[in-house]
């Protein structure tokens, strides 16, 4: 009974993680400019791989392995926003345009 519960929980985590990865990939293709694409990649993508790692920890059913999986999860969650922020800053400094849907760009007003 217990192992079925663990298996169902792990399966849910796996499918949710894969689903979020797929959503991030769809977003990467559908969204209009680099900044909006970064939203999809940094949020949905991180959550996707994080959930899959958690599934490994849960499936192993060992505290030390679970702790390692949690550590990996935290690592991904903490590094993803840093790389996204750095890329966005670099892209804006170098002068990539926002898409034509955009309503405002106060950073540009500030710099000029």
């Amino acid at each position: 009974m217990m192992d079925i519960l663990v298996a169902v929980l792990t399966a849910c985590l796996i499918l949710a993680g894969a689903g979020f990865a797929l959503v991030a990939a769809i977003g990467l293709n559908r969204l209009p400019d680099i900044y909006t694409r970064m939203h999809a990649a940094s949020k949905a993508g991180t959550v996707g791989s994080g959930l899959l790692l958690l599934a490994v920890g849960l499936h192993a059913g060992d505290l030390s392995i679970f702790a390692r999986a949690i550590a990996g999860f935290f690592f991904f969650v903490l590094t993803a926003p840093i790389s996204a922020h750095l890329l966005a800053m670099a892209a804006h400094k170098v002068g990539y345009r926002l898409s034509s849907h955009s309503t405002r760009d106060e950073l540009k007003d500030y710099e000029s």
Binding site: G17, A21, R37, A41, L52, L53
Partner: peptide, 17 residues
């Protein structure tokens, strides 16, 4: 670059599976 970053994330998912 964003897409390559995302690619790493997906490969991590593969490794977890």
């Amino acid at each position: 670059v964003v897409a390559l970053d995302m690619l790493t994330g997906i490969v991590i998912g593969f490794i977890a599976l």
